[in-house]
Amino acid sequence: MSYYFHSSYQFTYHGIDRIRTRLKLQNLNDVQLHEHCLKLISESYDIEETKSFKYIRVNKTHFYFVIRKDVNLILTISPMSATKLLTVIEKNL
């Protein structure tokens, strides 16, 4: 019997590249990167939701995971100020 890990989140290739670059995690392989991101997401308490997206803040930084809610797909990680986040939320309500 084999065991494998099934994540509730999926990643785009663009998202993986952005995460590696912006969080400076070039030394991690894909599996380690996924596990690290899932840990960051599960530890975050700063989550903003709109009709289509979730914005999850990374460790009190200015970076947010951008996740499509309908399929739990991590699109990217993006730097956002409070005003930019508010603007994005208002447009997608």
Rank of each mutant, 00 (worst) to 15 (best):
T21N: 12
R22T: 11
L23I: 07
L23W: 02
K24Q: 14
K24H: 13
K24S: 14
K24I: 15
L25C: 06
L25T: 04
L25P: 07
Q26M: 12
Q26Y: 15
N27T: 04
N27K: 05
L28F: 14
L28H: 13
L28W: 13
L28P: 12
N29Y: 01
N29Q: 01
D30A: 09
D30Q: 13
V31D: 10
Q32D: 15
Q32M: 13
L33R: 07
L33Y: 06
L33F: 11
L33S: 02
L33N: 06
H34N: 08
H34F: 10
H36E: 09
L38F: 05
K39P: 00
K39T: 12
L40F: 13
L40R: 14
L40S: 11
L40C: 13
L40K: 15
I41N: 10
I41T: 05
S42N: 14
E43G: 02
S44C: 08
S44K: 03
S44W: 03
Y45N: 15
Y45I: 05
Y45V: 04
D46N: 15
I47W: 09
I47V: 15
I47A: 09
E48P: 00
E48A: 10
E49G: 06
K51L: 11
K51M: 09
K51F: 01
S52N: 15
S52I: 05
F53P: 04
F53D: 11
K54C: 13
K54Q: 15
Y55R: 08
I56Q: 03
I56R: 03
R57D: 03
R57S: 03
R57A: 01
R57C: 11
V58P: 06
V58K: 07
N59L: 04
N59P: 00
K60S: 09
H62C: 06
F63Q: 00
Y64D: 04
I67T: 03
R68V: 12
R68Q: 12
R68E: 12
R68L: 08
K69G: 01
K69F: 03
D70Q: 11
D70N: 15
D70A: 15
D70V: 07
D70K: 14
V71W: 02
V71F: 09
N72A: 05
I74F: 04
I74Y: 02
I74M: 07
